[in-house]
């Protein structure tokens, strides 16, 4: 009787404790408010959209890609990514960048583009109602 609860309980306590610790260490929060991203300066997954009006730079030799992102409230920030432009970047509906805000720009280590996987659904707005 005692042994079962002793061993079971011990394992549960150790692993759940370990998990809780690791979770606080390794978890990355999703953040859609760029004002917070810029203020807090810790590693987050910032979700927003690409500012297509502002210039972007793809430096092929150094493999640095930089562009501007904005959140729903219109806060904008510059994103610098060490890598090439993701293939479906231009058609992405929204972008998730992982990294932290440092030295005046968001240093991204990863870019995830969310594309309309059923393009017709989202295209309804993009398709201009200009009859041929």
């Amino acid at each position: 009787m005692k042994n079962k609860y002793l061993f079971g309980g011990l394992i549960i306590v150790i692993f759940l404790g370990f998990m809780a610790y690791l979770f606080t260490q390794s978890n990355i929060k999703y953040e859609s408010d760029f004002a917070k991203v810029m203020k807090e300066q810790k590693v987050v997954k910032a979700t927003g959209s690409w500012v297509k009006d502002k210039s972007y730079v793809m430096d092929i030799q150094n493999r640095v890609f930089s562009f501007y992102m904005e959140d729903a409230d219109g806060h904008q920030m510059k994103v610098v990514y060490n890598g090439s432009m993701p293939n479906n970047f231009a058609s992405a509906q929204s972008i998730v960048v992982t990294g932290e805000y440092k030295d005046g720009c968001f240093q991204a280590t990863n870019i995830l583009t969310k594309c309309p996987s059923k393009y017709e659904g989202q295209n309804v707005q993009a398709v201009k109602t200009s009859n041929l």
Partner: peptide, 8 residues
């Protein structure tokens, strides 16, 4: 609203 990486 959280995520963990492979290291976790």
């Amino acid at each position: 609203g959280h995520s963990v990486n492979a290291k976790f």
